[in-house]
């Protein structure tokens, strides 16, 4: 059975397993890019020079991961479509066509990463949730049957190990710092908690019958939860009682924020299509 994948203005049938692999790769890339874009908003505006540099480093790592993943997705799409359509009428995809010419509905990132950066507390707590997810995810993805994904995970794993440590330390420091910082962190936790569930709830492209390529999120959920609980408790923070979890990002149903991120990010490419930069 062939499904349809819509990427930019291309809508074409691709066989199901390739379709799934492309969507999965794009999902991983979108997560990294959107959070990188958000974190880079701090560049030049950090609470202290040293931390300005630290958060910019994390933004750089994430954008680097996104690039590798988009490049791979572009290769997969180009290979798949070359078999079906005349190449000359359809320009090949690149990391940039995928980042700059897809609409909000085509982005498959989790809602968590598109939320506004908030104060430093929101930023480090979101980073901690996300980096912990990436840590366990890449740890598993290193063993993926897909060699490219495995190699990307291998390289990225080192980076996210550091991101997780850095952000966990900040969560603890601010949670257990002053009264004000504790209150801000608790507020950040109350705000962000409902967006964490989506990280570990499989989307359509994350359910694979034999589980050899994509990471089975159920297998990392316990580890993620344990790590989060351990750090939050050291930080003297309370997980909210409200169990409701937001979702939709993996299906392309986003918050209002993503539209603004994309219109800003994609502005030059869309204003001057066909230009080289």
């Amino acid at each position: 059975m062939a499904t349809e994948i819509s990427i930019g203005n291309l809508t074409q049938p691709i066989n199901e397993s390739t379709d799934q692999l492309i969507l999965y790769t794009l999902h991983l890339a979108d997560n990294a890019l959107i959070l990188g874009q958000r974190n880079a908003e701090w560049t030049g505006h950090g609470p202290v020079l040293e931390q300005d540099i630290a958060i910019s480093n994390i933004a750089l790592d994430l954008i680097g991961q996104a690039r590798m993943l988009y490049q791979y997705a572009a290769t997969l799409i180009n290979q798949a479509t070359n078999q079906l359509i005349n190449h000359s009428t359809n320009p090949a995809h690149t990391e940039d066509t995928l980042a700059f010419f897809r609409t909000g509905a085509e982005y498959k990132n989790c809602l968590l990463v598109e939320l506004p950066r908030g104060d430093w507390g929101v930023t480090v707590l979101r980073q901690f949730f996300f980096s912990t997810y990436q840590y366990f995810l890449y740890h598993e993805l290193k063993n993926s049957a897909d060699e490219t994904l495995a190699a990307i995970a291998e390289k990225s794993f080192k980076e996210v190990t550091y991101h997780m440590r850095w952000s966990a330390e900040w969560v603890i420091r601010l949670g257990d710092g002053t009264e004000e910082s504790h209150d801000r962190m608790q507020k950040a936790l109350d705000q962000l908690w409902a967006y964490t569930g989506e990280l570990l709830t499989p989307g359509d492209f994350e359910t694979e019958p034999d589980g050899k390529i994509v990471v089975d999120l159920r297998s990392i959920k316990v580890a993620w939860t344990n790590k989060i609980q351990e750090v939050l408790s050291t930080a003297t923070l309370q997980i909210p009682e409200n169990k409701w979890q937001q979702s939709g990002g993996k299906q392309g149903r986003h918050t209002e924020h993503l539209g603004y991120i994309l219109s800003e990010m994609q502005y030059l490419q869309r204003t001057y299509p066909n230009a080289q930069w």
Binding site: E50, Q51, I53, A54, N57, R165, W166, E169
Partner: peptide, 13 residues
């Protein structure tokens, strides 16, 4: 701890 992490970011970019 923070000093070591900062040093990594600042002096070993």
């Amino acid at each position: 701890k923070m000093a070591i992490e900062n040093a990594r970011d600042v002096y070993t970019r």
